[in-house]
Amino acid sequence: MVVEQQRYRYVGPADIAVVALQGDEGRLIRSAEEFADWVASVDARELAEPFTYVVDTAGVLRLAARRSEHVACAGGGTVLAAGEIALVRRPDGWSVSEVSNQSTGYCPEPRCWPAVAAALKQVGLDHPGGFTCEFVFRRCPDCKELSVVKDGDFICYVCGSDLPQAWNVDQT
């Protein structure tokens, strides 16, 4: 049985998307060869910090500089996953040292991990086996603010209302 991955549309501020989409999209990384070409083109100083990533709806990894907006990395499209990723060079090649679902533009659930794992496998990158830092996002049904759930406490940090257990970020 094939389980359909949830797709996430951009839910961040429209003004950020307008500006971000004037820049470059994330680099498509479909294979180990494309990863090698990309990493060879990245300034060594940039490799010392995490990158912005998305997994597009075709299951392809896209990478961009950390200060890039996820919506720009995705070319404005819908994604299966988004967050930040840190890479480390080991004697036997590159691997992922840290990876999160931290994206307030898409607010993906931690359950998007299989899409990330599949994209990394396609590229031949070893990874930690799950998110090294997970974020749970909810939209407050009362004040409509985006909240990050901390310590399993589903309470809106703005108005104190209860947040829903189920993902609802794309509801306004």
Results as ranks from 00 to 15, higher is better:
M1A: 15
M1P: 14
M1V: 14
V2T: 15
V3F: 13
Q6G: 09
R7C: 12
R9W: 05
R9L: 10
Y10L: 12
V11I: 14
V11S: 06
G12R: 07
P13E: 13
A14C: 01
A20V: 10
A20Y: 04
A20I: 05
G23R: 03
D24L: 14
G26R: 00
G26I: 06
I29C: 02
R30F: 00
S31E: 04
E33T: 15
E34T: 09
F35L: 08
A36Q: 13
A36Y: 01
D37E: 12
V39Y: 00
V39N: 02
A40M: 09
A40F: 09
S41P: 03
S41T: 13
S41Y: 01
V42R: 03
D43I: 05
L47Q: 09
A48C: 14
P50H: 02
T52A: 09
V54N: 00
V54W: 07
D56H: 09
D56Y: 08
T57H: 04
G59W: 00
L61S: 06
L61P: 09
A64K: 07
R67D: 15
R67W: 15
E69R: 14
E69Q: 14
V71C: 12
V71I: 06
A72G: 07
A72W: 05
T78L: 06
T78P: 07
V79W: 01
L80T: 04
A82S: 06
G83E: 11
G83P: 10
I85M: 03
A86Y: 10
V88P: 03
P91L: 11
D92W: 07
D92S: 15
G93P: 02
W94A: 01
W94N: 01
S97G: 07
S100V: 08
S100F: 06
N101C: 12
Q102K: 15
S103H: 12
T104W: 05
T104H: 09
P108Y: 00
P108S: 00
R111G: 06
R111I: 03
C112R: 10
W113N: 08
P114W: 03
A115T: 12
A115V: 06
V116P: 00
A117I: 01
Q122M: 13
D126Q: 14
H127Q: 06
P128A: 10
P128M: 07
F131A: 04
F131C: 08
C133Q: 12
E134Y: 06
E134P: 13
F135W: 13
F137C: 04
F137A: 02
R139E: 00
D142L: 09
D142M: 12
C143W: 01
K144G: 07
K144M: 12
E145P: 04
S147N: 15
V148I: 14
V149G: 00
V149K: 02
K150V: 15
K150D: 08
G152V: 11
G152C: 05
F154S: 00
Y157V: 12
Y157F: 15
V158I: 13
V158G: 03
C159M: 03
G160R: 02
S161R: 10
S161A: 15
S161C: 14
D162M: 07
D162F: 10
L163K: 04
Q165H: 06
A166P: 01
W167T: 03
V169L: 05
D170H: 08
D170P: 10
D170L: 02
D170V: 07
T172Y: 07
